[in-house]
Amino acid sequence: MNTFFKSMAATAVAAAALAGATAAQAEGERYVLVSHAPDSDSWWNTIKNGLALAGDQMDVEVEYRNPPTGDLADMARIIEQATASGPDGIITTLADYDVLSGPIRDAVASGIDVIIINSGTPEQAREVGALMYVGQPEYDAGFAAGQRAAGDGVTSFLCVNHYIAQPASSERCQGFADGLGVDLGNQMIDSGQDPSEIQNRVMAYLNANPDTDAVLTLGPTSADPTILALDQMGLAGDIYFGTFDLGGDIVQAIKDGVIEWGIDQQPFLQAYLPVVVLTNYHRLGVLPGNNINSGPGFVTADALGLVEQLAGEYR
């Protein structure tokens, strides 16, 4: 009995300490950013850093929330919860319109200003009553990349999808295929999230389909192991390689000529701009008249300086 109460007390004290330590102590407005990414997705660090920076600069309280496993139904609950806590604004991704539109509409109806970032489309953002959309439309970005690759003579490709349950990721592959003007067919593989599994699946696919012209990865999670796979197969620099998003290894690979281009959707802006926009809207009543496209920007071996320096942090 004693042991039990002692342990409970210890937990309570520990949790209290944490609560005290992490509540951001800023005056004024409070904004919550809700993402759909599981804890393990490192790409979202840039978003977290951008959010924190904007919070500091604008002197507002900011919070980052995500469903730990990436379950979008859990994400819907988090938006509901954010609404119940009564912030001034919610910045959220719209990874699945069916699941998330209800909670987002409720937030809007409760008097909370919402900005949609990253996933979703400008049209969907308007439909749920959000102020604006900040991001890179996935299909369009994929399409643009596909056209670019087609111009470079690519006719077949492998799309390494590490997050197949998320519809936006499939749209990137689909857009790329359409941009190339070929059928997606079996050129998209479900790679899983484990680096060595991804590496081996890429190698297996390329061994089985030796005439593949190009590889498309959807982010650092799939790009980093794919770089290793190509190194091992001696295809690095030989096969046409494009990727979505940036990260430390990707930047290095672009510099080394292994990766032709990285599509930078500039996630920093997706976290930073909404906080700035919302704060100014709430303080001064000013609001940009349109959506903001944070990407796509193609990052190639030229002009890598700042990108290289800040990769994984703000880029």
């Binding site: 990436g70 379950d71 139904a73 209800g102």
Partner: peptide
């Protein structure tokens, strides 16, 4: 929610 996802 009106939708089913593979990661639910």
């Amino acid at each position: 929610f009106g939708s089913a996802g593979a990661d639910r």
